[in-house]
């Protein structure tokens, strides 16, 4: 069980617990505003873009080339950007904080 902290664009913090599945699915299932996951998690739509708390980057791990290529063309991406559909929940993520990124 990992505790995941999402911060929405209006600065509300939502803490959810999860065991498996992606960070996008957990957020979507619980109605976290701004995480839409329109494409269901196949790295096509970028509607699950988050900025990982800089201190938690090692928990999130590194993005794949496909994910990086998509983020590269996003006006709101920075070095802390991830598509949270590409991060699978495990105990290692416990305590991670993700800020919903603004949409292009």
């Amino acid at each position: 069980m990992a505790k995941i902290n999402y911060v929405t664009l209006d600065n509300k913090k939502i803490t959810l617990e999860g065991n498996s599945g992606s960070l996008m699915k957990l957020a979507k299932d619980n109605g976290v505003k701004g995480i839409d996951g329109e494409c269901g998690g196949v790295c096509s739509c970028a509607t699950c873009h988050v900025h990982v708390n800089p201190e938690h980057m090692d928990k999130a791990g590194e993005a794949s080339e496909f994910e990086k290529d998509l983020l590269e063309l996003n006006d709101h991406s920075n070095e802390y950007s991830r598509l949270c559909c590409q991060i699978q929940i495990s105990d290692d993520l416990d305590g991670i904080e993700l800020k919903v990124a603004e949409r292009d």
């Binding site: 196949v42 790295c43 096509s44 496909f66 290529d69 998509l70 063309l73 292009d104």
Partner: peptide, 12 residues
């Protein structure tokens, strides 16, 4: 297909 960065709905 797990990774599918298609542009079937356009892009941008």
């Amino acid at each position: 297909r797990k990774i599918n960065p298609h542009v079937g709905f356009g892009f941008g």
